[in-house]
Protein backbone atom coordinates (compact mmCIF):
# COMPACT_ATOMS: atom_id res chain seq x y z
CA UNK A 1 0.00 0.00 0.00
CA UNK A 2 2.60 2.49 1.15
CA UNK A 3 5.19 1.48 -1.36
CA UNK A 4 2.60 1.73 -4.09
CA UNK A 5 1.84 5.26 -2.96
CA UNK A 6 5.51 6.21 -3.02
CA UNK A 7 5.89 4.67 -6.46
CA UNK A 8 2.88 6.56 -7.72
CA UNK A 9 4.26 9.86 -6.52
CA UNK A 10 7.59 9.14 -8.18
CA UNK A 11 5.83 8.38 -11.43
CA UNK A 12 3.86 11.60 -11.12
CA UNK A 13 7.09 13.54 -10.56
CA UNK A 14 8.74 11.90 -13.53
CA UNK A 15 5.75 12.74 -15.69
CA UNK A 16 5.91 16.35 -14.56
CA UNK A 17 9.60 16.58 -15.43
CA UNK A 18 8.76 15.34 -18.87
CA UNK A 19 5.85 17.72 -19.27
CA UNK A 20 7.35 20.99 -18.11
CA UNK A 21 10.75 22.48 -18.51
CA UNK A 22 12.63 22.17 -15.28
CA UNK A 23 15.88 23.82 -16.18
CA UNK A 24 17.41 23.78 -12.74
CA UNK A 25 16.49 20.15 -12.15
CA UNK A 26 17.97 19.05 -15.45
CA UNK A 27 21.10 21.17 -15.14
CA UNK A 28 21.69 20.27 -11.51
CA UNK A 29 21.07 16.60 -12.20
CA UNK A 30 23.48 16.67 -15.12
CA UNK A 31 26.27 18.21 -13.04
CA UNK A 32 25.81 15.76 -10.21
CA UNK A 33 25.68 12.83 -12.61
CA UNK A 34 28.85 14.03 -14.27
CA UNK A 35 30.70 14.21 -10.96
CA UNK A 36 29.33 10.79 -10.02
CA UNK A 37 30.64 9.46 -13.32
CA UNK A 38 34.05 10.98 -12.56
CA UNK A 39 34.08 9.29 -9.20
CA UNK A 40 32.98 5.89 -10.45
CA UNK A 41 35.18 5.86 -13.51
CA UNK A 42 38.24 7.35 -11.80
CA UNK A 43 40.16 4.03 -11.80
CA UNK A 44 39.49 3.68 -15.54
CA UNK A 45 39.93 7.29 -16.61
CA UNK A 46 42.87 8.36 -14.45
CA UNK A 47 46.11 8.19 -16.44
CA UNK A 48 48.21 7.75 -13.28
CA UNK A 49 47.92 6.71 -9.67
CA UNK A 50 46.83 9.75 -7.65
CA UNK A 51 49.64 9.02 -5.16
CA UNK A 52 52.53 8.54 -7.56
CA UNK A 53 54.91 11.42 -6.88
CA UNK A 54 57.76 12.66 -9.00
CA UNK A 55 59.50 15.60 -7.40
CA UNK A 56 61.60 16.25 -10.48
CA UNK A 57 58.48 16.97 -12.49
CA UNK A 58 56.53 19.19 -10.14
CA UNK A 59 54.23 22.06 -11.03
CA UNK A 60 54.05 21.18 -14.73
CA UNK A 61 51.38 23.45 -16.22
CA UNK A 62 48.24 21.96 -17.80
CA UNK A 63 48.04 21.68 -21.57
CA UNK A 64 45.60 24.60 -21.86
CA UNK A 65 48.12 26.87 -20.16
CA UNK A 66 50.97 25.95 -22.44
CA UNK A 67 51.95 22.66 -20.83
CA UNK A 68 53.73 20.20 -23.05
CA UNK A 69 53.34 16.87 -21.29
CA UNK A 70 50.59 14.88 -22.95
CA UNK A 71 50.68 12.35 -20.12
CA UNK A 72 49.70 15.10 -17.69
CA UNK A 73 46.90 16.94 -19.51
CA UNK A 74 46.06 18.97 -16.39
CA UNK A 75 49.63 19.30 -15.22
CA UNK A 76 51.16 18.11 -11.95
CA UNK A 77 50.96 19.39 -8.39
CA UNK A 78 53.71 20.46 -6.01
CA UNK A 79 54.83 16.88 -5.53
CA UNK A 80 54.70 16.05 -9.22
CA UNK A 81 51.50 14.02 -8.94
CA UNK A 82 49.20 13.94 -11.94
CA UNK A 83 46.54 16.57 -11.38
CA UNK A 84 43.87 15.01 -13.59
CA UNK A 85 44.11 11.75 -11.69
CA UNK A 86 43.88 13.51 -8.36
CA UNK A 87 40.89 15.55 -9.49
CA UNK A 88 39.10 12.39 -10.63
CA UNK A 89 39.79 10.58 -7.38
CA UNK A 90 38.86 13.75 -5.52
CA UNK A 91 35.33 13.36 -6.85
CA UNK A 92 35.13 10.07 -4.95
CA UNK A 93 35.99 11.74 -1.65
CA UNK A 94 33.68 14.70 -2.24
CA UNK A 95 30.72 12.43 -2.97
CA UNK A 96 31.66 10.00 -0.24
CA UNK A 97 31.84 12.77 2.36
CA UNK A 98 28.63 14.31 1.04
CA UNK A 99 26.62 11.11 0.83
CA UNK A 100 28.05 9.52 3.97
CA UNK A 101 27.35 12.61 6.03
CA UNK A 102 23.84 13.01 4.70
CA UNK A 103 22.96 9.36 5.21
CA UNK A 104 24.04 9.57 8.84
CA UNK A 105 22.63 13.00 9.54
CA UNK A 106 19.27 12.21 7.92
CA UNK A 107 19.07 9.10 10.07
CA UNK A 108 19.67 11.14 13.22
CA UNK A 109 17.47 14.06 12.21
CA UNK A 110 14.57 12.04 10.86
CA UNK A 111 14.45 9.81 13.91
CA UNK A 112 14.36 12.80 16.24
CA UNK A 113 11.78 14.57 14.08
CA UNK A 114 9.58 11.47 13.71
CA UNK A 115 9.50 10.76 17.43
CA UNK A 116 8.89 14.39 18.35
CA UNK A 117 6.19 14.95 15.77
CA UNK A 118 4.37 11.64 16.26
CA UNK A 119 4.32 11.39 20.03
CA UNK A 120 4.17 15.09 20.82
CA UNK A 121 4.14 16.09 24.48
CA UNK A 122 7.38 15.76 26.39
CA UNK A 123 8.98 13.67 23.65
CA UNK A 124 8.44 16.58 21.30
CA UNK A 125 9.83 19.03 23.86
CA UNK A 126 12.99 16.94 24.18
CA UNK A 127 13.30 16.71 20.39
CA UNK A 128 12.98 20.46 19.94
CA UNK A 129 15.36 21.03 22.82
CA UNK A 130 17.98 18.90 21.10
CA UNK A 131 17.54 20.95 17.95
CA UNK A 132 18.01 24.19 19.89
CA UNK A 133 21.15 22.87 21.58
CA UNK A 134 22.56 21.76 18.26
CA UNK A 135 21.84 25.17 16.69
CA UNK A 136 23.58 27.00 19.49
CA UNK A 137 26.84 25.14 18.84
CA UNK A 138 29.11 26.99 16.42
CA UNK A 139 29.35 24.62 13.47
CA UNK A 140 32.86 25.18 12.13
CA UNK A 141 34.45 25.59 15.54
CA UNK A 142 32.98 22.45 17.04
CA UNK A 143 33.82 20.45 13.92
CA UNK A 144 37.41 21.71 14.06
CA UNK A 145 37.72 21.09 17.77
CA UNK A 146 36.40 17.53 17.66
CA UNK A 147 38.40 16.58 14.57
CA UNK A 148 41.46 18.16 16.19
CA UNK A 149 40.94 15.93 19.20
CA UNK A 150 39.95 12.61 17.66
CA UNK A 151 41.90 12.86 14.43
CA UNK A 152 40.68 13.28 10.92
CA UNK A 153 40.02 9.84 9.53
CA UNK A 154 37.38 10.06 6.82
CA UNK A 155 34.86 8.25 9.01
CA UNK A 156 35.47 10.71 11.85
CA UNK A 157 34.94 13.68 9.54
CA UNK A 158 31.67 12.22 8.28
CA UNK A 159 30.57 11.38 11.80
CA UNK A 160 31.34 14.84 13.13
CA UNK A 161 29.64 16.59 10.23
CA UNK A 162 26.61 14.32 10.53
CA UNK A 163 26.47 15.06 14.24
CA UNK A 164 26.19 18.74 13.38
CA UNK A 165 24.07 18.80 10.22
CA UNK A 166 20.94 16.90 11.28
CA UNK A 167 18.86 19.78 12.59
CA UNK A 168 17.03 20.65 9.36
CA UNK A 169 16.01 17.03 8.87
CA UNK A 170 14.55 17.00 12.36
CA UNK A 171 12.64 20.28 11.98
CA UNK A 172 11.15 19.43 8.59
CA UNK A 173 10.26 15.87 9.56
CA UNK A 174 8.59 17.02 12.72
CA UNK A 175 6.42 19.64 11.07
CA UNK A 176 5.37 17.22 8.33
CA UNK A 177 4.53 14.49 10.82
CA UNK A 178 2.44 16.96 12.80
CA UNK A 179 0.34 17.50 9.68
CA UNK A 180 0.24 13.83 8.73
CA UNK A 181 -0.66 12.24 12.01
CA UNK A 182 -4.23 13.45 11.95
CA UNK A 183 -4.78 12.37 8.35
CA UNK A 184 -7.33 9.68 7.58
CA UNK A 185 -5.03 6.91 6.42
CA UNK A 186 -3.00 7.17 9.62
CA UNK A 187 -6.08 7.17 11.78
CA UNK A 188 -7.33 4.19 9.82
CA UNK A 189 -4.11 2.30 10.31
CA UNK A 190 -4.19 3.05 14.00
CA UNK A 191 -7.79 1.90 14.25
CA UNK A 192 -6.75 -1.32 12.49
CA UNK A 193 -4.39 -1.93 15.38
CA UNK A 194 -1.06 -1.24 13.67
CA UNK A 195 1.81 -0.63 16.05
CA UNK A 196 3.39 2.84 16.31
CA UNK A 197 6.60 1.55 14.80
CA UNK A 198 4.72 0.08 11.87
CA UNK A 199 2.78 3.28 11.28
CA UNK A 200 5.93 5.38 11.48
CA UNK A 201 7.90 3.21 9.10
CA UNK A 202 5.29 2.14 6.57
CA UNK A 203 2.74 4.93 6.57
CA UNK A 204 4.49 8.13 7.54
CA UNK A 205 8.08 7.70 6.36
CA UNK A 206 7.24 7.10 2.67
CA UNK A 207 5.37 10.39 2.61
CA UNK A 208 8.46 12.19 3.82
CA UNK A 209 10.78 10.80 1.19
CA UNK A 210 10.38 13.64 -1.29
CA UNK A 211 10.76 16.67 1.02
CA UNK A 212 13.63 14.99 2.87
CA UNK A 213 15.42 14.45 -0.43
CA UNK A 214 15.35 18.22 -0.90
CA UNK A 215 16.89 18.76 2.52
CA UNK A 216 19.41 16.03 1.82
CA UNK A 217 20.68 17.83 -1.27
CA UNK A 218 21.16 21.08 0.63
CA UNK A 219 22.93 19.38 3.51
CA UNK A 220 25.10 17.40 1.14
CA UNK A 221 26.32 20.63 -0.42
CA UNK A 222 26.93 21.97 3.08
CA UNK A 223 28.92 18.92 4.11
CA UNK A 224 31.12 19.10 1.03
CA UNK A 225 31.91 22.77 1.63
CA UNK A 226 32.60 22.14 5.30
CA UNK A 227 35.01 19.34 4.49
CA UNK A 228 36.83 21.76 2.20
CA UNK A 229 36.98 24.36 4.96
CA UNK A 230 38.33 21.80 7.45
CA UNK A 231 40.94 20.71 4.93
CA UNK A 232 41.84 24.33 4.24
CA UNK A 233 42.56 24.79 7.94
CA UNK A 234 44.72 21.66 7.97
CA UNK A 235 42.25 19.52 9.92
CA UNK A 236 40.42 17.78 7.10
CA UNK A 237 41.13 14.78 4.94
CA UNK A 238 44.65 13.42 5.46
CA UNK A 239 47.35 13.48 2.83
CA UNK A 240 48.06 11.78 0.54
CA UNK A 241 44.33 11.29 -0.14
CA UNK A 242 43.04 13.26 -3.09
CA UNK A 243 40.28 15.47 -1.77
CA UNK A 244 39.38 18.69 -3.56
CA UNK A 245 39.43 20.54 -0.27
CA UNK A 246 42.87 19.16 0.55
CA UNK A 247 44.12 19.98 -2.96
CA UNK A 248 42.99 23.57 -2.50
CA UNK A 249 44.70 23.66 0.89
CA UNK A 250 47.92 22.31 -0.61
CA UNK A 251 47.82 24.85 -3.43
CA UNK A 252 46.83 27.88 -1.40
CA UNK A 253 50.37 29.10 -0.87
CA UNK A 254 50.76 29.34 -4.62
CA UNK A 255 47.44 31.06 -5.21
CA UNK A 256 48.96 34.21 -6.70
CA UNK A 257 51.40 32.41 -8.97
CA UNK A 258 50.13 28.99 -10.05
CA UNK A 259 46.51 29.86 -9.55
CA UNK A 260 45.28 27.03 -11.77
CA UNK A 261 46.25 24.65 -8.97
CA UNK A 262 43.58 26.17 -6.77
CA UNK A 263 41.15 27.09 -9.54
CA UNK A 264 40.72 23.58 -10.94
CA UNK A 265 39.58 21.90 -7.72
CA UNK A 266 37.87 25.17 -6.78
CA UNK A 267 35.77 25.19 -9.93
CA UNK A 268 34.87 21.52 -9.48
CA UNK A 269 33.88 22.06 -5.88
CA UNK A 270 31.89 25.13 -6.79
CA UNK A 271 30.15 23.37 -9.70
CA UNK A 272 29.26 20.35 -7.63
CA UNK A 273 27.78 22.52 -4.90
CA UNK A 274 25.85 24.60 -7.45
CA UNK A 275 24.69 21.39 -9.12
CA UNK A 276 23.47 19.86 -5.88
CA UNK A 277 21.71 23.09 -4.93
CA UNK A 278 20.04 23.34 -8.36
CA UNK A 279 18.90 19.77 -8.02
CA UNK A 280 17.44 20.57 -4.62
CA UNK A 281 15.70 23.71 -5.90
CA UNK A 282 14.31 21.79 -8.83
CA UNK A 283 12.96 19.07 -6.58
CA UNK A 284 11.37 21.65 -4.31
CA UNK A 285 9.65 23.39 -7.23
CA UNK A 286 8.40 20.05 -8.38
CA UNK A 287 6.99 19.28 -4.96
CA UNK A 288 5.32 22.62 -4.47
CA UNK A 289 3.80 22.19 -7.93
CA UNK A 290 2.55 18.81 -6.78
CA UNK A 291 1.01 20.33 -3.69
CA UNK A 292 -0.63 22.96 -5.85
CA UNK A 293 -2.24 20.26 -8.00
Amino acid sequence: MASRRALASLVAIAARVGRRRHASLVLGGAIVLLVAAMALLAPVLAPHSPYEQNLANRLAPPLFLGGTQASHPLGTDMLGRDYLSRLLYGAQIALLVGLGTVLLSSLIGTTIGLLGGYYGGWVDSVAMFLVTVRLSLPLVLVALAVVGLIGSALSVIMGVLAGLLWDRFAVVTRSLVLQLREREFILAARAAGASDLRILLTEILPNLAAPLTVIATLEMANAILLEAALSFLGLGVKPPEASWGLMIAEAKDLVFFQSWLINLPGVLLFSLVVGINLLGDGLRDLLSAKHAD
Binding site: Y51, M78, L79, G234, P239, P240, E250
Partner: peptide
Protein backbone atom coordinates in the same frame (compact mmCIF):
# COMPACT_ATOMS: atom_id res chain seq x y z
CA UNK B 1 56.69 22.72 5.46
CA UNK B 2 53.60 20.80 4.57
CA UNK B 3 54.78 19.84 1.15
CA UNK B 4 58.01 18.34 2.44
CA UNK B 5 56.06 16.39 5.05
CA UNK B 6 53.70 15.19 2.34
CA UNK B 7 56.60 14.19 0.09
CA UNK B 8 58.02 12.13 2.94
CA UNK B 9 54.63 10.53 3.51
CA UNK B 10 54.51 9.73 -0.20
CA UNK B 11 57.96 8.12 -0.02
CA UNK B 12 57.03 6.09 3.03
CA UNK B 13 53.77 4.96 1.49
Amino acid sequence: SRQIAEAIIGNLR
